[in-house]
């Protein structure tokens, strides 16, 4: 069979085989999308890739990484584990730019803990305002957690609201106790 032995035919056959092989593999998944769809117990290699990129980013690149993480938060099919992971990464680099995206998550009982994980590390009035605003939206345990964040952040502007919660008969004990501790902490920080 001359065609099989000719010098020109051999490379063409080789290329065809490789083409088949790679087209079957499909497009390479984007770790910044896949990490948002992380599920508990599943392989977390994509999240690891993202983590490695985040921690290797120099300070001048924090803004760029922050934008990628915020974009990933909007991934369709985002999971609870994905949200938790992305917020853990945002805790390392987030700035005031993250506040508008995280604030709605902070106001929902189901996502407030994840949002606090990122936002508690963000200094500045924008984050302070988001925490204070969420006081009126959360209930029970998550509200108590939010109150703890206000105290840890040393937000003295929240003191009057916390003092009112401390004595609010409408609130469950967990909220009143958290408010009392927060007021005590903020008072001791001032003295």
């Amino acid at each position: 069979m001359p065609a099989e032995t000719s010098p020109a035919a051999a490379p063409a056959a080789y290329q065809a085989r490789n083409s088949d092989r790679y087209s079957n593999a499909g497009a390479t998944p984007d770790p910044w999308v896949e990490c948002a769809k992380l599920t508990y117990g599943a392989d977390r290699s994509f999240a690891w890739t993202v983590r490695e990129q985040v921690i290797a980013t120099p300070p001048e690149g924090y803004g760029r990484v922050e934008e990628k993480l915020l974009k990933a938060l909007a991934t369709p099919g985002r999971t609870d584990a994905g949200l938790a992971f992305l917020c853990q990464m945002l805790a390392l680099v987030a700035s005031a730019k993250s506040v508008p995206v995280l604030a709605p998550l902070l106001r929902a009982d189901a996502t407030a803990d994840a949002a606090r994980y990122a936002l508690e590390r963000v200094a500045g009035p924008e984050a302070d305002a988001a925490f204070r605003a969420a006081l009126g939206s959360l209930t029970g345990n998550t509200k108590a957690g939010l109150i703890g964040s206000l105290a840890v952040r040393g937000d003295t502007a929240s003191q009057s609201a916390l003092a009112a919660l401390k004595d609010a008969a409408s609130e469950p004990p967990v909220v009143r106790e958290a408010a009392a501790r927060a007021v005590e902490k903020l008072n001791s920080a001032k003295s």
Binding site: I55, P59, Y62, A91, L92, V93, A112, D113, R116, Y117, E120, R121, G140, N141, T142, K143, A144, G145, L146, I147, G148, S149, A151, V152, V174, A178, R181, A182, K185
Partner: peptide, 19 residues
């Protein structure tokens, strides 16, 4: 090193906090 400083602490799951 701001990133390192952020790793000195972490937010706690509700209702817990260091307050």
């Amino acid at each position: 090193d701001e990133m390192a400083n952020r790793l000195r602490t972490r937010a706690m799951r509700s209702p817990w906090s260091l307050a």
